[in-house]
Design a protein around this nucleic acid. Structure first.
Lengths: 136, 136
DNA sequence: ATATTATTTGCAACATGGTTGCATTAATTA
DNA sequence: TAATTAATGCAACCATGTTGCAAATAATAT
């Protein structure tokens, strides 16, 4: 499905910036930070707008939000099955310590865990660090 | 071992602030952010000093550094076996989405993983989210 | 096509966490 | 106790994240 239709389907208005950002995310094999987006689309929009676009994408189920090794937010285009408030990014992430890149390891599954009593689990992340295929 | 000796053993000078921070970390059952430390030890020291104390602790192997669910650094007192540059914080962490707390789950072990080819693993983190024993 | 309306955008401004440089002060040592 | 070396406080800066509000634009109804 093209980006315009995906925006519409998720209840977002279609604007130049949103199309550009969504195409960028879809074309990338790794999660991008807002700074990455600004670099890739210079003069496309104000940084606040990009912030809000990314925020809107996450709320609308168009992009997952994941923190990199430094705690900075990065966004990866969602699978079609994601919807507003319902994300299915239940897969491990690989964080490259050289380039800072974040890769979604879609094919791997998360391990089952058992928590100490009193703790209630709602979400789990397996985060791997090392060198990515480009840096190693 | 008392905090002064631990500082000395790890090659750090003994100062009032360092003792206070180390005791605080050792007394806490969860990882503390710099803001937590400032709140717990008001007027003890400048925020830059606390920043550097925490930084020094990590480098010296006195405290682990772990990011909370918002990407903010938190510090937990190390096991005695940790040393400068050699940390043994290979255990899952639990991040409470209510209070922001980070708990080290020392007793759990990490799952073995297999990476796509080209990726080199140096470190892995299993991060669990939910409500902690106090908030649930 | 045009007017209406609801949303998105840009700008200014601020918050927080992280970080450096440098002069001053304090801890170790000789 | 003097000399040396490291820690501290302060001012200042950077990046990321975030809000309020007026101006511009997309969707909608006419």
């Amino acid at each position: 499905m093209n980006s315009q239709d995906r925006l519409r389907d998720h209840g977002l208005r279609v604007t130049g910036t949103r199309i550009a950002v969504l195409e960028l995310l879809r074309a990338s094999d790794q999660a991008l930070s807002q700074a990455d987006v600004e670099r890739a689309l210079p003069d496309q929009a104000d940084r606040v707008t990009l912030f809000r676009v990314l925020q809107a994408f996450e709320e609308a189920g168009l992009a997952h939000r994941v923190l990199d090794a430094k705690g900075v937010a990065r966004y990866a285009s969602c699978a079609p099955s994601c919807s507003s408030g319902h994300h299915h990014d239940v897969h491990p992430h690989f964080r490259c310590t050289e380039c800072g890149g974040v890769y979604c390891l879609e094919s791997m599954s998360l391990p089952a865990v058992r928590l100490p009593k009193g703790f209630k689990l709602t979400n789990s992340h397996l985060d791997l660090q090392g060198s990515c295929k480009t840096c190693a």
